[in-house]
Design a binder for these strands. Structure first.
Lengths: 227, 227
DNA sequence: TTTCCGCATTGACAAAAGTCAATTTTTCTA
DNA sequence: TAGAAAAATTGACTTTTGTCAATGCGGAAA
């Protein structure tokens, strides 16, 4: 069964038994989304949550002036939209397919039934939510780094870490979106990338980034070293 | 039994049975902290979580230059330090008693045992963590309001809401700490409070705040209306 | 009561980031 | 592959915020 294969690869369901995986497969629904397609909007009734099989999903909030604040970029294996499953309310943010994406949808009611019967499933969930809280706390911490160069440096180090600590990697989002993540605008980001490039700290060619001087980058991120 | 009485009043444990409450009371340990005392530090091993019986607790991170970024101010009934209980790692932030405080401590291992046996307990926990995630998302949204007046206005409206929507209320933290929450410095906060006062939007006398023009305050917070 | 210390306020100035507008580069599609 | 649209970059200028330094204010302790 194809669906079951996918379920087994989802970290959230790691360590569960064959029977538990099968139970999950019975309630899951496969769904496809085209690039740019909205999966749910802030305020929509929370009828279930999603797991990513392939593709990428952007989770974001919208300011009154329409400016995006990206909360997460989700990839294969990630779970999103689970908050209202347990609070019984609306989705707290927007979700949009960043690429053509293949998702699994778990309807709220069936899932709640499963969790009620199965404590080990809930321990996995508790760990997931706890980790997510931790990541949020880190994001808040980074946003509060007062200067943009520091936030950018922190982001580049984080992105490098995700690419198994290579010094060279691809930004998986546009620079405009990166600006949004860093809480700034494309013009400012462009200038700071330029300055870092001129000082030989990084090399930025399109979406290809190369870290030339990791030490300096770390000093900019953690101590408030000036550019 | 005194301890049981306190447990019953903790929202996290709302809706649980008498037997469940008693089981919790058996594993809980009562602890007292003096004003300013550290409860745990970032990086400490996560040996359990805390519930506040009385007093207030500050949860914060420290930047390399030693600047505090306050993540939460916790009050009676609130839970904190539960993240590492489920991820099995270290505390992700600092906790410090803001007043003389009386807490209940729930050791990790005993608690995990309880949760494993009891799905309804875990559903409550899942809802708690989900709500907290939601609040974090809101905080991130506010931090990304680009200007300080907007962030301050959002905070004042939030504080007023906590005081049952009264127009007059007390700040429960110093202005220096409020500045830190808003991601700015005391000088800037002071100037903006001054400007808002001169324009008849608020009245600020020490820690006593009065909202004189709620509509304008909302416009500053949500639309980027200028001060 | 008086002194001291921390917190808050204010002013002058410097630095950082945003806005607006023009231009170049890249990407997508017809 | 040309042409249009979107994204990125750059420059000139404005606004916002932070820094440094001086001063005021109020409560705790001698």
């Amino acid at each position: 069964m194809k669906l079951l294969d996918h379920i087994v690869t989802i970290p959230l369901f790691e360590g569960l038994s064959r029977g538990q995986h099968e139970a999950l497969a019975r309630i899951a629904v496969s769904r496809s989304y085209k690039k740019g397609q909205t999966i749910f909007s802030e305020g929509d009734e929370g009828i279930g949550f999603y797991a990513i099989v392939s593709g990428r999903v952007k989770i974001f909030k919208l300011s009154p002036e329409g400016k995006e604040q990206i909360l997460h970029m989700m990839g294969p294996g990630d779970i999103f939209g689970e908050v209202p499953v347990f609070t019984g309310r609306e989705y707290p943010a927007y979700a949009e397919a960043h690429n053509n994406s293949s998702l699994l949808f778990f309807p709220r009611n069936s899932f709640i039934e499963l969790v009620k019967k199965d404590p080990s499933l809930s321990l996995n969930l508790l760990a997931l939510l706890s980790r997510r809280l931790r990541r949020f706390a880190a994001l808040i911490e980074d946003l509060s780094l007062k200067e943009v160069p520091a936030r950018l440096a922190a982001y580049l180090l984080y992105a490098s870490k995700k690419s198994s600590n290579k010094d060279e990697f691809d930004l998986d989002i546009s620079k405009g979106q990166l600006a949004s993540i860093l809480g700034t605008i494309p013009e400012t980001l462009s200038r700071i990338l330029g300055r870092m490039g001129r000082q030989g700290i990084i090399l930025s060619e399109g979406s290809r980034m190369k870290i030339l001087n990791r030490t300096t980058l770390e000093e900019i991120a953690t101590k408030g070293r000036k550019l």
